[in-house]
Design a protein around this nucleic acid. Structure first.
Lengths: 204, 204
DNA sequence: CACTTAATTCAACGCTTGTTGAATTAGTCG
DNA sequence: CGACTAATTCAACAAGCGTTGAATTAAGTG
């Protein structure tokens, strides 16, 4: 029941995936050429088509990483409500500094150029990450989408300045420092009610 | 002292620039092809080289817009110190919704793919916009860069979600609503001192 | 009216891209 | 040992890219 050649398992497939993640996250979908990925993997370009079909399928395969927001959401919810913001930022930084974060950077870079990737980002941010979190916090549905947008705006800006543009000193700041600065912001976006004399929340 | 052909002045040059701004800001530097720009301008591709030299020079020429942060900075500084955040966000939105904003979107999209554009963004954000503002506010030099990073992270995230990813509802929210939500955040990043028990500012 | 000079057109170059298909190599199984 | 099958290599394709240079057109100048 096991036919075909198998030297040390499929050796080059993984090398290609590794190189693809590296190139895609560093250059984005278009700038990362099939030939460059193959070269970095020490492999003929046609192997990529043989193993993955097309470049776009390789892209999808390279992003197939076990990033399950669910467990993170429950972990963030577990604790005092006043510190949700800080816990969110802390976990956020940990994930984006991991290999899974590289995949995220790749998608984000590509989202700048292709609608289909931007849609991927929107779907993930809202339906998979932020909305479940807001639901777990018991935020009313009519506030959730607006609060979610605000959280997304601050966190995506963090990604942009820290990992894409590499704007110092936020690009190299230790996690704790970033958490102290952004934690209260996220906290306010998530659970803050009114401030000053004006009603900032609710649909308009 | 005025030689050469002049039908209605240089007619196509402006058309090319207009098309270039449109294409660059919508697709970014690489995806916007010289041929597509020429087509949209109703012009032969070689005209672009004739008028501007290379594609990169066209890019630079297309971004040559009178965006002088100086006047904005002084306008923002003019008023009560407690409302600097709101005034900054208000002006920020106005600029990015103008033609000048389209140029900014183009540079930002390109910054995702090319280091030279990322450097352009860094230089502009810090040295031309945020640092002068912080200096005008009398923020100590050792705090300025960190505060500037934070402001940049929130505002660039606004750009990303509103204009690039088009994440609703922040993508379509009226200026006033965004100002109410982000104003206090920017205010805290700019002038906030300590919060809770911890010192969030200062070099670390 | 020549003459000059810039704007414009057209065809083509050299290069890189993703993808393909035939030929070759090399393990596994009956 | 053959037979089989998958992995790999190699050369080439069509398409798109930015750019070039010669030819053509047209407007202002003396």
């Amino acid at each position: 029941m096991n036919r075909g050649r198998r030297p040390g398992q499929v050796s080059s497939r993984d090398a290609v995936l590794r190189a693809a993640r590296e190139q895609f996250s560093r250059k984005g979908y278009d700038a990362a050429t099939v030939r460059a990925i193959a070269a970095e993997a020490g492999v003929d370009p046609s192997m990529i088509n043989h193993h993955f079909g097309t470049k776009e399928q390789l892209f999808m395969a390279a992003l197939e990483l076990p990033v399950d927001p669910k467990e993170h959401v429950t972990a963030i919810l577990n604790g005092s409500r006043a510190d949700v913001g800080e816990r969110l930022v802390t976990r956020f930084l940990t994930v984006w500094d991991s290999p899974a974060g590289a995949a995220g950077v790749a998608v984000l870079r590509t989202a700048m150029q292709h609608e289909w990737s931007a849609a991927l980002v929107r779907e993930f941010i809202l339906n998979r990450a932020i909305n479940p979190l807001l639901a777990g916090l018991g935020v009313p549905a009519e506030e959730a989408s607006w609060r979610g947008s605000l959280v997304a705006s601050q966190l995506s800006g963090l990604i942009l300045t820290r990992y894409l543009i590499k704007l110092e000193p936020i690009a190299s700041a230790p996690h704790a420092v970033v958490v102290q600065a952004l934690g209260p912001t996220i906290q306010r976006y998530l659970t803050g009610t009114k401030y000053g004399e004006r009603d900032a929340w609710g649909p308009r």
